[in-house]
Amino acid sequence: MAAISTGFIGIGSQGGPMAHRMLLRFPLTVWARRPEVTAEFAEKGATVAASVEELGAACDHVGLCVVNDADVLEICGRLVPAMKPGSLLALHSTILPETAIRVEALCGSHGVAMVDAPVSGGAPGAEAGTMTVMCGGSQAAFDQAKPVFESFGKLIVLLGGAGAGQKAKIVNNTLMAANMGLAQAALQAGEALGVDRKALAELVKASSGRSFGFEVYARIPEPRAFEHGAKMLLKDTNLLASILPGSADTAMLESVAKSFLLLATEG
Rank of each mutant, 00 (worst) to 15 (best):
I4T: 15
I4M: 15
I4D: 02
S5W: 00
S5T: 13
G7V: 05
G7I: 05
G10R: 04
I11F: 07
G12L: 04
Q14F: 11
G15D: 08
A19H: 02
L23K: 09
L24I: 00
F26Q: 07
L28C: 11
L28S: 12
T29D: 05
A32R: 09
R33K: 14
P35F: 13
E36F: 02
E36A: 09
T38E: 08
F41A: 09
F41Q: 10
K44M: 08
G45L: 09
A49T: 08
E54M: 06
C59N: 11
D60P: 10
V67D: 11
V67A: 14
N68S: 13
N68H: 13
D69N: 14
D71S: 15
E74H: 11
C76G: 10
C76A: 12
G77Y: 04
R78K: 15
V80I: 15
P81C: 08
P81E: 08
M83Y: 03
M83A: 01
G86V: 00
S93F: 09
I95E: 04
P97W: 07
E104N: 12
L106R: 11
S109D: 15
G111P: 06
V112Q: 02
A113D: 14
A113E: 13
M114P: 08
D116M: 03
E127V: 10
T130S: 12
T132Y: 01
G137N: 03
A140Y: 02
A141L: 02
F142R: 10
K146C: 05
L158E: 07
G160R: 06
Q166N: 06
Q166E: 12
K169E: 06
V171M: 12
N173E: 07
L175E: 02
N179G: 13
G181E: 09
A183Q: 05
Q184Y: 08
Q184S: 15
Q184L: 15
A185V: 11
Q188R: 15
G190T: 02
G190I: 00
A192F: 00
A192R: 14
L193I: 05
G194Y: 01
R197F: 03
E202K: 15
K205V: 02
K205W: 00
S208L: 12
S208Q: 12
G209K: 03
F212E: 10
E215R: 05
A218P: 11
P221T: 01
M232D: 07
L233C: 07
L233Q: 10
K235R: 12
D236G: 06
L239A: 09
I243R: 03
S247V: 07
A248V: 06
D249E: 13
T250Q: 10
A251D: 14
M252P: 00
M252F: 10
E254H: 14
L262R: 13
L263A: 12
A264P: 05
G267T: 07
